[in-house]
Design a protein around this nucleic acid. Structure first.
Lengths: 154, 154
DNA sequence: GGCGATTATTTCAAGCTTGAAGTTTCGTAA
DNA sequence: TTACGAAACTTCAAGCTTGAAATAATCGCC
């Protein structure tokens, strides 16, 4: 999804937009991935899961994580498995519904995430440095109105 | 990279923007991936490679593809391998420099891509339907000015 | 209570992705 | 011309990702 338009037609500007959008996010994502690896020896998916859990001290179900992060159930299983084996999160079986388990950050996971998140925010600020805060607000607004047509779909 | 901000600070709007950007592109990408699979039994990476080759009838080197698509060399090798085995592209050894090979769409690959690309453009038009062509132009402009600071970096 | 449908999760195969290490070929300088 | 460093590419291990199939527990209806 990174190639240029191959024809010109009515949706031309939208196709251009999509290609720009994709190239921008891929570029930023690649840079963040690399820094996470180099500076903290972790990955973006692990960071995503930890970020979600950090916002929910009470914990999240696997399916909550899957829905929130926009990835499949099976995917979350693997990432959480690795985080558990690293001692960063726990899976607690629940009495109420034994099909589910509550996933939470450990003390260590929480400390670890806080440090990474601080660096992460700085990196994003740096990488988007050429976008003014005001412009960022406007762009966000446009993207938000688009997203609202898709949020929570299917 | 899909979680919300975990702190409020100077780069707050940029972080918000990044999260929106990422969620938007993930959502669109997931939808396109699914349709490519269902309708044409292909994948996004294959589509990307074919799109690049379609623009270059004279062919591209593996490293050209890698650079253009923003993915690693080894990655391109695997995708091209699969396209070759499907008869959609060819790898032609070159007399000039025998380290390299020219990758080209086959006749079948070219026909196949044209059909997929038409559907793809319609899908993008549909998925970005809530963004007016004019708004699309403005958004693209903003993203372009951002990208120019990164294009061809490192 | 029993049982079929539903829900939550895991498992699995196939493919994508990277970064590092390995192979082959090229260019060039002694 | 030979040797060495660079360039183009492939191979590989590890991890991410999906979608489909399997497992297990719960729910609702009789």
């Amino acid at each position: 999804m990174v190639a240029g338009p191959t024809s010109i037609g009515p949706g031309k500007e939208r196709l251009r937009l999509w290609i720009r959008l994709l190239r921008a996010s891929r570029t930023i994502e690649a840079e963040l991935r690399e820094r996470l690896k180099k500076e903290f020896d972790t990955t973006l998916p692990r960071f995503d899961v930890m970020a979600a859990l950090y916002r929910s001290p009470e914990g999240m179900l696997m399916s909550d994580l899957s829905r929130f992060l926009l990835v499949s159930n099976g995917n979350v299983t693997g990432i959480v498995d690795r985080l558990v084996s690293e001692g960063l999160v726990t899976r607690a079986r629940r009495n109420g519904d034994r099909r589910t388990s509550m996933v939470r950050l450990t003390e260590e996971g929480s400390k670890s995430f806080a440090a990474i998140a601080a660096a992460h925010e700085n990196w994003v600020g740096e990488l988007l440095g050429t976008v003014s805060e005001d412009e960022a607000r406007r762009l966000t607004g446009m993207l938000k109105s688009f997203r609202s047509n898709w949020e929570g779909r299917e």
